[in-house]
Design a protein around this nucleic acid. Structure first.
Length: 840
RNA sequence: GCCCCCGUAGCCCAAUCGGCAGAGGCAGCCGACUUAAAAUCGGUUCAGUGCGGGUUCAAGUCCCGCCGGGGGCACCA
């Protein structure tokens, strides 16, 4: 006897009567390869359209458990809409530029192209086996020139609009990968990829001006409310971090121009006792010019110290405040007071104006600094605690009074509330030309330069005479030079610099010798617009076709992990808005709805080689079959929840599929038989199940869809064995419904059932046309409560009237006995489900 | 420190508008079939919903306060 798996053991019977997932997979995979049931590009297709998109993978070779969950869920959604009669665009591709290929090339001496293409081929085969309902005619891979050609084209459009620019500034630098990183790629001071502490480096780098779109990126989140996870919306709001306040002018003694500071608390202007400028700002460097030698020296030493500190040190919130007095003074515009100017690293050079007014009484950071440097603290807001008592003086307590209160020690403003003081002082400053309302954002511009080989070359030529020149469209794509002969090892400058022949070119404007830009683009550029390229992946005269964009975009349903909640989704939203402004698309948000699937874990923690708890997808598929693994993923719980593989049972899934499969095997009626003569109770179950499952599927509650399918399988089994019998038309109807429901999750099993039932192509089997009359119950159980406790159940017609039901309930013998003659205060009737009697 | 989400049986999870706490599954137990086992089929035990208040005729569901878990942001003025 051959052992199949834990749950299903083969008996010496023929394959026609036993569920055998291996045979079934072997039977149908070649058929699907041939028939391509999910082609979406037929121009004569009249079905309404839907665009369902899974986040594309990095081509890492085989699929793993995480992919298996993500693609199972996206697949259920896509297949559901196909069953509902839509022409569903469900494409897949590869996010194939990036460090792993380059590192593999370095470590194993392989060509990144070959390595990448091999992995893609392997991963594609895995996806086909996994029965993903992709349209294989639309495959794309971002490392191919046919794709990155349009990255370059889009870059030049951005450059034209001033949305791509170069600036010299301190950037995040990973000393291990020897590359700059975007803010988004620095997690808690560590390189997202290799966990190396990130340092700062001053470099001339390319940026996309995403901050121009900060307000729209923030405000438009409103449109996504309800269709995006609230968590992701919150994270994006957080990341953009808009703050509303005022810019206020301070004169500086010995400087012609006044400087602006940004504050959210103009009400506390009278409480400013000093000013702080960012130690690494140009302003600090300027102010220290002309100071005494010892001040200069102290400042230089301090700046050096700050520069050496890693981000991790910087991020430690309990770090003591440090700084240097610059021996310069500012004038407080509201009271003419002389404020000493300090430099410190707790003020950020690239936020606001890199300088703040310090109000130690009402700002914890300023208070910490004041206490460290022995600077004065002046309370200008009377803040009370819960009991109405004034809070302790911050100077002695060390706790800044950040709450609401009444203004004091502020001249004319005294007695105003915090809010009133803010408007009063803002208006006053504006009148005098000393201030204006202002907004600031946590969001910074998107740094896209990478000093690596395996990415899209930036289509700019540097010419001594003409400067930065965009490569004209007809010269695109600028293809990567062959990796052969280039040293790809990270060394702080792009490996492309060594490709002499490639670098040396002529200026597109003046024709003189010039050099190509040697940086490559962040791979997040690739994924910012890939969803549009799927519409015309082979198009050679543009990135996408406006007609097809109108037909398919934006995406109806996006599916992917929450790991991309900020990075990819924010960039993609930015790109879409920029494209909208350029008139290239007519919508403003790329992803109408978003579903985040959870992660697959093992025994309470993420799978990792170091923990030794990795579950291999391939082994699971071999042991339990594709359908069982998919079913297990979907049934485990709500899609957004993490799955612990130790808590679920693919063996049980296999058992259930076998049970479902046997229904089709047992049906003896002919295809096309009229179901209306069949067993009424079973028909009611079938129609009710299909009705409910539609609603459940549209709410992404696929685990419940599976549970309802199990229920239907159970009642159908019962009907075959001890009820209507296998020849009843209602049994056929039920078995066909089960096959259609299962086609969403377990396509091989469903296809085999469908074939046994005498049909072809279950994916297009079609949702049951639900007969509403079958959904109406003959009787419902009405619960009679006395003071909320159930005392009686009555079988009543669903249409029963309130009065009639009240009579019935009050007359029921058990109710009469329970009431025992007690006087009745109220009777609440909610026909036909509940009656609640409240005695006096 | 600020913000978001989640706590229902031994376990994973259900429970439209507030209306019988249980749909489905895992594990367990009992039984049928069998020489026996597997497979299959049938049956069945198990919580009062993290804790404390409140609103209501009625609260898992709504409100307030805690506790526990997960996640995001964090020297952003």
């Amino acid at each position: 006897m051959r052992r199949y798996n834990r749950g299903v053991t083969e008996t010496p019977q023929t394959d026609e009567t036993r569920y055998n997932f291996r045979d079934i997979e072997e039977r149908w995979l070649p058929v699907w390869r041939e028939t391509q049931p999910f082609r979406s590009s037929d121009p004569t297709d009249e079905r309404p359209t839907k665009y369902v998109l899974d986040m594309f993978p990095y081509p890492s070779g085989d699929l793993h458990m995480g992919h298996a969950e993500a693609y199972a869920l996206g697949d259920v959604i896509a297949r559901y809409w196909v069953q509902r009669g839509f022409n569903v665009l469900h494409p897949i591709g590869w996010d194939s530029f990036g460090l792993p290929a380059e590192n593999a090339a370095i470590n194993r001496g392989l060509d990144p192209r070959g390595w990448t293409e091999d992995n893609i081929a392997q991963q594609r085969a895995s996806m086909e086996r996994y029965a993903c309902s992709f349209d294989w005619d639309r495959v794309l891979a971002t490392h191919r020139p046919e794709y990155y050609h349009w990255n370059q084209w889009l870059f030049t459009r951005m450059h034209e609009k001033g949305l791509a620019y170069r600036k010299h500034s301190a950037v995040n630098w990973c000393p291990k990968d020897q590359t700059v990183l975007a803010n988004e790629q620095v997690v808690a001071g560590l390189c997202e990829r290799c966990d190396t502490p990130v340092t700062k480096k001053k470099l001339n780098q390319w940026y996309f001006k995403i901050t121009d779109y900060a307000d729209r990126l923030l405000d438009d989140l409103q449109e996504l409310e309800g269709t995006w996870p609230s968590k992701v919306i919150a994270m994006q709001r957080n990341w953009i971090g808009r703050s509303e306040g005022a810019d206020v002018q301070f004169r500086i003694e010995g400087r012609d121009e006044p400087i602006d500071i940004y504050t959210t608390r103009p009400d506390t202007l009278h409480g400013a006792t000093f000013m702080v400028v960012a130690a690494d700002s140009d302003l600090a460097a300027e102010l220290v010019q002309g100071a005494d030698a010892d001040v200069k020296q102290a400042f230089d030493a301090y700046v050096e110290e700050v520069r050496a500190a890693s981000d991790i040190d910087r991020l430690a919130t309990d770090r003591p405040k440090t700084g240097v007095f610059l021996n310069r003074y500012a004038t407080n515009p509201v009271n003419g007071e002389r404020l000493p100017i300090w430099a410190s690293d707790y003020v950020l050079a690239d936020y606001g104006h890199g300088a703040v007014m310090a109000v130690p009484a009402h700002d914890q950071r300023d208070l910490d600094f004041a206490r460290a440097m022995d600077l004065p603290v002046r309370v200008v807001l009377d803040v009370r605690d819960e009991d109405g008592k004034p809070v302790e003086d911050p100077a002695t307590s060390g706790v800044a009074a950040t709450g609401d209160g009444t203004v004091i020690n502020s001249g004319d403003l005294d007695g105003l509330s915090k809010a009133d003081a803010i408007s009063a002082i803002s208006a006053d400053l504006e009148d005098k030309g000393l201030g204006k309302s202002a907004r600031n954002y946590r969001l910074r511009d998107w740094l896209i330069s990478r000093q690596r080989y395996w990415g899209t070359p930036i289509p700019i030529v540097h010419c001594d005479d003409c400067g930065e020149v965009r490569v004209p469209d007809e010269q695109l794509p600028i293809e990567l030079p062959p990796a052969e002969g280039l040293d790809l090892k990270p060394k702080g400058s792009s490996p492309l610099g060594a490709a002499t022949e490639w670098v040396n070119t002529e200026c597109p404007d003046c024709g003189k010798p010039a050099k190509r830009d040697t940086d490559t683009m962040d791979t997040f550029v690739d994924s910012s617009w890939y969803y549009l390229r799927y519409l015309n992946p082979q198009k050679t005269d543009g990135p996408f076709d406006p007609e097809d964009t109108k037909k398919w975009a934006p995406i109806d349903q996006y599916v992917g992990g929450v790991t991309h909640a900020i990075l990819h989704l924010l960039y993609s939203r930015f790109f879409t808005k920029a494209l909208n402004d350029m008139g290239l698309v007519d919508f403003n948000e790329p992803f109408t709805a978003l579903l985040n699937q959870g992660m697959v874990q093992m025994e309470g923690s993420a799978m990792s080689k170091s923990r030794g708890n990795v579950v291999r997808l391939g082994e699971q598929l071999d042991e339990f079959g594709v359908d069982s693994v998919r079913l297990t993923m979907v049934f485990a719980g709500p899609p957004e929840d993490d799955i612990d593989w130790a808590d679920v049972s693919p063996g049980a899934s296999a058992k259930f599929l076998a049970r479902a499969w046997r229904l089709a095997r047992d049906v003896t009626s002919e295809p096309g038989v009229d179901p209306s003569t069949g067993d009424a109770a079973l028909r009611a179950s079938t129609h009710k199940t299909m009705h409910e499952c539609a609603e459940l599927a549209e709410g992404f509650r696929f685990n419940v869809v599976v549970a309802r399918t199990m229920e239907l399988v159970n009642v159908t089994r019962k009907a075959i064995d001890s009820g209507a019998g296998p020849a009843d038309p209602a049994v056929r109807e039920a078995a066909e419904a089960v096959a259609v429901l299962l086609s969403l999750v377990a396509p091989y099993c469903a296809e085999d059932m469908w074939s046994m039932l005498g049909h072809e192509n279950v994916a297009r089997g079609g949702w049951l046309d639900v007969d509403e009359s079958l959904l109406v119950e003959d009787t419902v159980t009405c619960v009679v409560q006395i003071k909320g406790k159930v005392r009686e159940r009555l079988e009543v017609p669903p249409s029963i009237g309130e009065d009639e039901l009240r009579e019935m309930a009050l007359a029921a013998p058990r109710v009469v006995r329970a009431l025992d003659g007690a006087e009745i205060r109220t009777v609440i009737v909610r026909a036909p489900k509940v009656v609640n009697i409240v005695p006096a």
